[in-house]
Design a protein around this nucleic acid. Structure first.
Length: 595
DNA sequence: CTAGGGTTAG
């Protein structure tokens, strides 16, 4: 380098163009030595002779430091000296503004470019998409297509991520068509973006197919398919793909672990979750908030609140998600009981104490809270006072509360309304018919069933499982598939007698069929969570806690059964259902029977 | 010069 400089010096020292040596070379040297301010002083002394190299060096230095002010001075200098930058330099300017989060300025640079190329278009699209401005990203993409710009693999990889967020799968499919037409579909970046799009749209089969057709796979594409499954609650499939990633010789990174943990929390596999945690620590993967948040969630959903709390306390920086995960943990474990505090906070919001007025989601929280506490009338009044139309989520949580607290009238009105809004959601029909059943209104039960059949809505079948020696043992209601079902049934007969002696009274309102009482009792004993509990008693040694999981919400009768079970057999029982954790010790549940 | 996958929430 030094020799080269001397060479340049010798050949140009007497030439009129030796400005390169005297001015621009020092500027780029100052820039690369991090002495940006001095370089800017040099610039101030010069006119248009700054030229391409001078501006390029300065802009690069400003970009490195994200020095917005300084970059603006460079830009101003170009304008003042009437320098007309070429496409490359304009693109650098665009990227600079984009990375400094000045999207409007970046956009202006793009608009004023006499000739745009793929890079300038793509840089703009990518900045919009990375800052969450999905529809703007799509607008720029559309403009690019209209003005005959030809997208490349970079453009496709980036634009697809905005499709699902801003416009739905329709546009995504059209772009998919272009990708196939121009042969970018086997490109690994484009492919992982594509499969991610289909997965996020719920079309996991398509996503899997794209994944399988990729000529090569890497951590990112594997993580995309794992995350896709995990986000849809297809936890076993997610685990399967995680194993595949391993067996194909790749190493998971922190994003992979975050998604893996989602799947593990879904199945409540605490031991595997701990293992994943160990791997993360041993491999010294970056401990970003994303990863910590998913660990907090995993521990809390797997029943280990104190670990979750320890992680939370040790976080150097918490995001909103960390707080949510922790709060959800407490509330699912029944440590909530904070209706009055909640109402206070809400009133404070209305009074403007927190700088934000309550929005739909806050009204939703209050409705949920009141509903769980059995204050159904108040919750219903609250919904009427909401500033906007109540969402299906809010109505759904109130309907659930009506079921638990047997408020038939309000439940009926909420349920009917909900079915109008969400006719495809099987849960709505099921809860409404449960409610009718508990009131003995069998004609209405049949009516709702008929509506369900007519609209061909199907409900996810209820099942419970228990982990034993690295295997998950699944049970359906009246299970006929488990290899040890005979043993379980025999044991069930035996324990039901002991249970009754200890005060278990079957809650017949939990049966959804109009049959005689003896039949009802039999049906109750066939519930999947009871079968899993019984299996746990057989399979594990004395005094070992039994942990059962259910994919839907646990029924009132099974909850009661489990409480007495824990007392009679001196076992700690933990029951995790779709929404909540029930930690039962000596007949007392952590939820305080507050669902 | 420009690119893909991520945690919570009835």
């Amino acid at each position: 380098m030094f020799n080269l400089m001397r060479l340049i010096h010798r050949s140009f020292s007497s030439s009129p163009t030796n400005y390169v040596l005297q001015t621009i070379l020092p500027i780029s040297q100052l820039c690369s030595n991090g002495r940006l301010q001095e370089a800017l002083l040099e610039m101030a002394m010069l006119g248009p002779e700054m030229g391409f190299h001078g501006y390029d060096a300065l802009l690069n230095a400003c970009l490195d430091k994200r020095a917005l002010r300084d970059g603006q001075r460079v830009h101003a200098h170009m304008i003042k000296t009437r320098y007309l930058p070429a496409t490359y330099l304009r693109t650098r300017l665009l990227i600079f503004y984009g990375k400094c989060d000045c999207l409007e300025d970046a956009r202006k640079v793009l608009d004023e470019m006499p000739e745009k190329n793929v890079v300038s278009w793509t840089a703009m699209i990518s900045r919009y998409s990375q800052t969450g401005h999905s529809s703007e990203a799509l607008t720029v993409f559309a403009e690019m297509m209209r003005s005959d710009g030809k997208p490349n693999e970079f453009t496709f990889a980036t634009v697809l991520t905005s499709c699902i967020r801003a416009s739905g799968l329709g546009l995504g499919k059209q772009i998919h068509g272009l990708i196939v037409k121009w042969n970018y579909d086997s490109h690994i970046f484009v492919g992982s973006s594509l499969l991610d799009m289909y997965a996020k749209a719920g079309q996991i089969k398509e996503a899997r197919e794209i994944f399988e057709c990729l000529p090569e796979r890497d951590v990112v594409s594997c993580t995309a398919i794992i995350a896709g499954y995990a986000q849809l609650g297809l936890d076993e499939e997610a685990l399967e793909m995680f194993h595949r990633l391993h067996s194909e010789g790749m190493s998971p990174n922190y994003v992979t672990y975050a998604s893996l943990l989602t799947a593990l929390s879904g199945l409540a596999l605490l031991d595997h979750g701990k293992q994943a945690h160990c791997h993360v620590l041993r491999r010294e993967l970056p401990f970003y908030a994303v990863l910590q948040n998913s660990l907090i969630d995993m521990y809390s959903k797997c029943g280990n609140l104190s670990y979750a709390r320890r992680l939370f306390d040790n976080m150097p920086e918490r995001t909103a998600i960390s707080w949510n995960a922790m709060l959800v943990g407490y509330s699912k474990h029944g440590h909530g009981r904070m209706e009055d505090t909640g109402l206070n906070i809400f009133d404070g919001m209305v009074a403007g104490e927190y700088g934000t007025k309550p929005g739909t989601e806050h009204y939703g929280c209050i409705v949920d809270m009141l509903g769980r506490a059995g204050r159904i009338d108040e919750a219903f009044e609250f919904i009427k006072r909401m500033p906007s139309k109540p969402t299906a989520g809010v109505l759904g949580s109130l309907l659930g509360a009506c079921r638990v607290h047997l408020s038939v009238d309000i439940g009926e009105s909420v349920g009917r309304r909900l079915i109008e809004i969400e006719p495809e959601n099987a849960g709505n029909y099921v809860i409404l018919s449960n409610l009718y059943a508990s009131a003995g209104r069998w004609a209405d039960v049949n009516n709702v069933r008929a509506m369900m059949m007519q609209k061909a809505v199907t409900k996810e079948p209820g099942r419970s499982w228990i982990q034993h020696e690295q295997t998950l043992h699944y049970f359906h209601a009246n299970d006929r598939t488990h290899p040890r079902r005979e043993e379980v049934l025999a044991k069930m007969k035996e324990i039901s007698i002991k249970m009754k002696q200890a005060g278990y009274v079957p809650d017949l309102s939990c049966v959804l069929y109009d049959v005689d009482e003896e039949q009802k009792e039999k049906m109750l004993l066939g519930h999947s969570e009871k079968l899993a509990l019984t299996f746990g008693l057989i399979a594990t040694g004395e005094g070992i806690p039994i942990r059962v999981f259910k994919n839907l919400r646990i029924c009132v009768d099974c909850h009661n059964f489990a409480k007495i079970f824990s007392k009679v057999f001196e076992r700690e029982v933990s029951l995790r259902d779709k929404n909540r954790f029930h930690q039962i010790v000596d007949g007392i549940c952590s939820c305080g029977d507050y669902w």
